[in-house]
Structure formats: structure tokens, C-alpha cells
Design a protein around this nucleic acid. Sequence first.
DNA 1: CGGCCTTTTGATGTACTTCAACCCCTGTGG
DNA 2: CCACAGGGGTTGAAGTACATCAAAAGGCCG
Lengths: 253, 253
Amino acid sequence: MTAALAAPLFPTPGLLERLRPHAAATALTGCDGCPARALAVCQALADADMDEFGAIGDQQRFAPKEALFRQGDDADAVFTITSGMVRLYRLLSDGRRQILGFLLPGDFIGLAPDERYASTAEAVTPVAACRFDARAYATLAERKPRLLASLRRAAADELAAAQDHMVLLGRRSADERVAAFLIALRQRLAVRGGGAVTIALPMSRQDLADHLGLTIETVSRVISRLARERVLLVVPDGVRVLDAQKLQALAAA
Amino acid sequence: MTAALAAPLFPTPGLLERLRPHAAATALTGCDGCPARALAVCQALADADMDEFGAIGDQQRFAPKEALFRQGDDADAVFTITSGMVRLYRLLSDGRRQILGFLLPGDFIGLAPDERYASTAEAVTPVAACRFDARAYATLAERKPRLLASLRRAAADELAAAQDHMVLLGRRSADERVAAFLIALRQRLAVRGGGAVTIALPMSRQDLADHLGLTIETVSRVISRLARERVLLVVPDGVRVLDAQKLQALAAA
DNA sequence: CGGCCTTTTGATGTACTTCAACCCCTGTGG
DNA sequence: CCACAGGGGTTGAAGTACATCAAAAGGCCG
């Protein structure tokens, strides 16, 4: 139904390219040319330290739905996402799910390395990630104050994001949740060099619902209505922001 | 109406004593005899380091409703609570409030010292806290790896708690929220040497509602019903757990 | 005792969920 | 080439958990 309108805007140039691993083109060893280099925790390290750093980590790839780790597993590794998107979630015993966040290139997982993982991390798109042995990583961090400082900043950011999300879940309406989520994701994609108008949504509606504390139907209805009101344009695997101001107003900061 | 039942159980021996500052009895200088010593981040320091540590911090007292800091203020200090209870919250522009957490003795605030505080910290009861200059604290931490490690653990714990709360807010019913909250608070009080059956609730119903993402009426109704069903006994400034098993079942982990 | 604020309880309203049907792809096999 | 099964998404109708509105019932401090 939006096809007539959508057509002239297509094809979006490489909507999800930046989220996808760049084929086998990238050499899997070393941090040179890592697409997440400028974003990640590792940027804190001097070039001289990178060899040592690269030595304890190795690139891994994950297919969609494949888990980086599962809730309850021994927490023996930490990760930096280099491409793709990861969902981090917790399950209740009866199957209810809360997605804690969607991770993008440059994001770090494992700031809270307790004995066991408290949540599951699963690839949404094909994912590439640097995997580090948790123990080796911790040891290295102890000797590199700049890395440690960088980790602290990452932890601070993540905590702030978690608090934002608590406000969203506790005190916002369905419309506000969707709008606020889209604005936040757009911001994060923009930092990573994504276009500023098209927001990639490679995750399913169920994923969105489980992140926003809603049902799949409510998410669908809200997005449909925003499209009808010409705030958004629904495109495959994403949305285009037609009226950023209105979207902002809906988010009700 | 619960008076007949409640009477024999009263008076609860010093229900809130542990949350209250011990009058002027405590000398305000130094960390010796600090009631939070065993719990706080500072426990990581060797006795030898404590002088230096004590030098950059000073004890402050706050009356109920008084702010330790406010959302938007320059983030120039961090705190360790030594007695009392603090609520940490964020406000939306239209006045809606989300309480991110209630802080108890030993808890640390300021793990995310960005430029400005992203939330407000306000005394619920009379509060005593160690205030540290943020810059001096950071400098000291750089030179004391054990303190840094302790901060990391604190950050990890806080992040895990935030994630727990996201699950609560996003995916749990009103009954489950109240039950899960009470169990978690009971656990935290128990660690701090509180009794295991009586849960201190010095905060208002409005505070509870704003923490649990509910309204004051819903909180009141749920607690009333739990009392009617003999799961809880409502006492002044708290509740007594009569049927821990049932409460646990209601929380639906 | 009387005023004020918090809490409780009741009656009504509604935003979101639940249930259900249908659509639209994409893939598979005859 | 089309049939059709199956999964994700949208849309509609009905239900419900919680919110809102309203009023009464405590506590607390003058």
C-alpha cells in the first residue's frame, strides 16, 4: 500500500551494508582495518599495544540466530562487535523475554563478567565479533590504565542507557516508546556512519516488542499509524524518517 | 483492621534503626567505625591507604527530601551511603518520574560521572554519606588498582540490577513487580544485617509506584490483597513477610 | 480537636493485550 | 509453472489489567 510512494525512494543505497560483515574481504587477523576500531573500547590503546591486544582476541563470525553466549553459561569471554547486530536478552522461566538492548559495531559485551552470563547474546544479522578470553582480557586491562579507563566509560554509557530504558519501560506510552526507541537507534546508527534518515530495523517485530515491553501487535499498529500520518515510511528492514520533528515530539523527552 | 493481628508482633525491634544515622554519636571524621565499611567500595583499600582515602572525603548528612545532587547539576562529586536510604530518579519534562533505585548503606553513587548528573539523588530517610570530590577520587583510583577493581565490581552489580529491573518493568505484572521488588529489597537489607522477615519501606507509596512503573493505587491494592491473603503483614514503614514461599511464587522468577 | 497529607477503597474508563483472521513473502516440491 | 505450506506482519473485534477519578479513612503535628 505504500508501494507507490516507496518506489521512487528505492533502492536505499546499501541500507544494511554497514551492519553486515563485509564478506570474507576482511582478513580475520589483527585490528588494522577493523571497521569498529574508531568506536570500540580498543581505541584507547596505543598502536604499540595493539599487537599484544590482537594476540588475545580472535575474530569470529556468527550466523543470524546463532548465540555468542547463553544465559547461565560460564562467563569465560568478552566481545567487541565489529559488524552486524546482536540482541541481548533475558528469559523468564515461563518464556517471557526482555531484550535488554541491541548491540552495534563498536559495542562491548561482558562488562559485568560475573561467574555466569546473566543474559543471552544472539546474532540478529550475520555478525562479526572479536572474542577475548575474559581472564586474559582482565589481566591485560590491569596493565593498561587507558584500556581500563575506556572500559569505565563504556560501563558508564551502558548504565546510562539502561537507566534511559527503565524510564521508557516504566513511564512511557506505546507511542512514546516506539518514537524514543527509533530516535535513539537513529542516533547510534548515525554515529557509526549510517544515513540520518533511514533507520535499519533488521530485527523482527517480536524483537522490538520484547525490547519495548509491548506486544507485537501494538508495535505493528503504532508503526502503521506513524506511517499513515506521514511521520515514517516503512521500507524493507527499516523505516525512513519523514518528519523528524514530529517524531521527536512524540517521544516526549 | 490488621491491628488485632499486628499487636502481638509489635513493636518491631528498631525496624529502621539500621537505616537511620546513629545520631551524633558517630564522629564525622575518618573511616574507622564507619558502619558501611564492610559493604562499601572502600573495603578494597588496605588500612594503610585509608588515611589518604579519608582525606579526600567528608561525611555529610541530609534530611529527608534533601538532594545529594540534582539532574543536570555539574557532576563534581561521588558518594558512598553510610546510613539511611536514598532514592535515585529521573524526571520527564511533563513531571512523570521513574525511580531508578533505592540506595542503602554501602551503595556507591557516581559510577557514571559524565559531565552532568543524569538523575537526582534524594534522601528518603535521614541520610549520612561520604562525599568525595569526583576528580580527586578518580585520581586516587588510578593509583589504587584494588579500588578500581572494586569500582568495576560495583558497576557490574549495578548494571545487573538495572537489567533485572528492565525485565521487571517490561515483562512482569503488577503482582509480580511488587513481589519481586520486596524479595530483592529483603535480600539487600538482610546482607546489611536487617532482619529477614521485616522489610523496611520508609519510602512513600508514590515512590514505590514510580519505581515499579505503576500507580499509587495499584501498589496499595496489591499490598492490601497480599495482606488479606496472609502473605504479608503491613506494619508502620514496612511489611512483614508471613509466607515467603508464596511471595517467591508470586514473583515468578 | 482540627487541618493536612498519605493511604486505602470503590466505581468507572481506557490503553494495551488477546484472540482471530488475513495478507504477503519466500521457499519447496509436484 | 503453479500449488501450498509456513513464517512474519498487519488489521480488526473483544477482553482485561491497570489507570483514572472520586471519596472516605487513617496518621501526624500544630
